[in-house]
Structures are given as C-alpha cells and as structure tokens.
Nucleic acid binder design. Structure first.
Lengths: 241, 241
DNA sequence: ACCTGAACACCGTTCAAGT
DNA sequence: ACCTGAACACCGTTCAAGT
C-alpha cells in the first residue's frame, strides 16, 4: 500500500525539520520505528496516552532520544497520521459515469480506516495533509471528480471539504465509543438524549421537542454518515462552474 | 442576547455535575465570573493558555478553588463555549421562501462570532452542544428548515452537519491566523503552498500539479466558506424525504 | 554521531487543613 | 460552607554529559 520504493518527495520549506537523522545503527531508533510504536499506543490506549514518554518507553528509551529523529510531538503525529492514510485502499480507475459513487466509496474507506484507530482522527484536524499518502489521496479524489467533469474550482474546494466532513464524523464517532463502552451503552446514551429533548419546555423549544426522535436517529450505524455523503455529492453536482 | 431571566433548564443526567455551588458571598467566585475570566484569556492568548491555573490566577486565587464551582476543565470549556454561542444574533422570522439564505446567514453569524475568539472553535468539536444557547441555536435552525418544508429527518441530520462544517472551518481558519501573524504572512504561506503543489512530480501527481492554483485559492476571504455553504444548502434542497 | 539522565517549566486534579 | 497550600502524577522539550 505504501510507496516506500519511490524517491522521497521534497518537503514544504516551512514544514522541514532540522535534518537531524542519520544512517541508523544496528538496532537504533528510526522515524518508522517511532511512528509504529506511537500508532500501537494510540490503537491500544487512545490518542491521549500517546506521549513522547510513553512512545519512548515502548522503545526502551527515554523521551529525549526521540528528538534525534523527530523535531516535535506534532511532527510525530503527522507521521502517524500519514501512515494511517496510507492504509486507505485505492479503488478502480475513475469512471466518468460513476464519479458520485466512487467519491463516496473513498470517503467510506477513510472512515473505515480511521474507525480502526480510536480517536486518532482528532489529531488530523486542520492539519493540511501534505504527507506522501495524503497527497496520493488528494490526487485520487481529484481524478475521480475530473472524470466526472466537475469544474476545477469546485474540485479544488471539494478536496478540502470532503475530508473535513469525513474526519469530523470520525472524530465524533470515536468520542461516542470512548464515552460508551458497549453498543448497549451507546443505545442508552441515545435514548437518554431523546428523552431529554422530548422533555424540554415546549413553549421555548417546540421544534426540538417534536423532532426528538429524528434528532437522535441514525447514531448507531451508517445512516448519519451516508446522509452527509449524499448531501455533499448532490451539492457538488449542483454547483455551477 | 442571553436568556438569564428564564427558569433554568434541566440538565442531562450524565452531564450533571455534583451540585457543589452555593449562594455566593460578597465577592466570591461564581460560575459566571470563572467563565468570563476564562474567555478573556482565550481571547487574549488562545485556547492553550486557558488553564485552570491561569484562570484562577486571573481571579486572584489558586486552581483548586475553581473546583468548588466547576467539576472539571471540560465543564468550564462547555460553559465558555455556550456563552460564545449566545453571542450569535437571532435573525428575523423564518421565511418559507428564503430558508436557504436564512440558513446561510445563521452559519455566517456563527463563523463571525467564533472568528472573534481565536481557536476556541477547536474546543467545540464533537461536543454535543446542550447548553441553553446552543439549544436555542438548534431550535432556530430547525425552524428555518421547517418553514422551508424540508423532511424531518433531513432537518435533524442537517442540524448536526451544518454546525460541524462551520466549526471545522472556524478551527481551520484560526490555525492559519495563529501560524501566520499578518495578512501578508498568510499570503506568503498560500503562495508557498501553491509553489509546492506545482513542483510535485507530474508523473505521480498530475492533478495536484495542474490544480495548484485552484487548490490554494480562496483561503484569504469568504469564498471558500461560501462555497461550502452553497454545497450544503443545495445538497439539502436536493435530498428526498 | 548518537543517545540519555536530569532538569525546567509546566499541566489537571485531589485532599487535608484552614477559616 | 467555602477556600486553599501543597502535593500527586503527570506533560513536552532542552541540554550538558556521556559513549
């Protein structure tokens, strides 16, 4: 899935870290090993548990040693996230007649991948994704929309907006599964919300009261996410050049 | 703008804090005073500078004293955010013929308000907004969409999706203005991005290279945000019941 | 050239003790 | 009833000193 045999991409100047890493010794640390250890902690204990100290400990060193390979926790997170984006499968060739379905498919893949990595989605926010794999993802989405014949500027904005939506949903969903431990807990929580909306003073919140049901629907499966995808795709299709 | 003269709403059971606060003494602390001090710090120095310690210091006490009025930093943040949502102006009566424009107007107001509070938008994420003012905001959006004749379930999902988009954009924009200090800096950054995309290997990233211009357009003003609003509103209008 | 112990300057939260 | 000093168990990052 990764493209590690290709020549490395240049780095955006303002993102470039002081190039401190060297040819690694026998069993020395490396950016890859550090990122791998970090992701394992995220998967096991969540994003907050991933500290420079905990990552270092997993590798049998102290936190200070990581700074020889990574300039900051921020940069490490970027590495981890780009690696995860690399898990997103690349689908078939762009098909002009199926751009909407293909775009939705990519979005579904991203959601599926991040749902396997706890609340990592939170860290992905508002980070302009410039890693190798993120660029490939953008390239892919653009190619699908271009095949679909969308105007360039629509494609460009959509390239921002679509991941924004997907990541926001992933983060939201990761919170639910953090706060509630079992599917039954989630159902309880949703039920509590519905009852709460229904019990609000009807003179001040008539609409919240009467929509208590729909407002709390679709939190359990894919409906909510699919609704958003449909809105986005239909909206994009309706945008003038 | 606030509705402090109305009877207090019940609190969702799982959100209820141990009711530790009492009738405040002469110049004692209060939830309101604490939230006000916290927001002032956010406005002056950003979200990260808002710590329990810094808020307490601004009030002339120690951090521990805040815990008599607020159960956690999390709860304090909720208080601050709901207060800021209260700054969003409530527009005219819902007009069936203008629901799209009215919905966009609400979204613009929310963006305008949060853009005055640094990166506070970040803290608003994936927090189901259940404060007094947030509920009023939801009630308002629902009333506009109901006047527009949208199906109930579409309205309910949209109630989630619209703020999600607006807040995500607010957060993204707050990052730009944190990393870049002047408009000129922002322009430089955007230019750097454009050059970067244009300089990628064209055999691997043909679309990113050729769309370098559009991809980095509209980051300075409202176009990007307005594009998203338009997509959402058109998409919502196109959803079947 | 790389790695590290110890330190610096912080966090959120708790709790015994005060008034 | 309310407030607080001090402590607990942490953070990210730096840096002099080691090998």
């Amino acid at each position: 899935v990764t493209s590690s045999d290709l020549p490395p991409l240049p780095r955006l100047a303002s993102r470039r870290s002081r190039d401190r890493r060297r040819a690694p010794r026998e069993r020395a640390l490396s950016r890859e090993a550090i990122a791998k250890a970090a992701l394992e902690i995220v998967d096991r204990e969540g994003l907050d548990a991933m500290t420079m100290r905990s990552v270092a400990q997993a590798l049998g060193t102290g936190a200070a040693s990581l700074y020889a390979h990574v300039t900051s926790k921020e940069e490490l997170l970027e590495l981890v996230i780009d690696g995860v984006i690399g898990e997103v499968p690349t689908p078939d060739q762009p098909d002009p007649d199926r751009w909407q379905e293909q775009l939705k498919e990519v979005a579904r893949s991203i959601r599926a991948v991040f749902s396997r990595h706890r609340d990592l989605a939170r860290a992905s926010f508002a980070r302009i994704p410039l890693g190798e794999n993120a660029l490939r993802g953008s390239e892919l989405m653009i190619s699908i929309m271009r095949a679909g014949g969308l105007p360039d500027q629509v494609i460009a904005y959509a390239c921002d907006m679509l991941p924004l939506y997907v990541m926001a949903v992933c983060y939201e969903e990761s919170l639910y599964s953090t706060e509630t431990n079992s599917p039954a807990d989630l159902a309880d929580f949703v039920a509590e919300m519905r009852t709460y909306f229904a019990s609000l003073p009807p003179n001040r919140f008539p609409n919240l009261v009467s929509l208590a049901g729909p407002l709390t629907a679709g939190s359990e499966g894919d409906e909510r996410f699919e609704f958003g995808l449909e809105v986005l795709v239909r909206g994009l299709a309706a945008m003038p050049g």
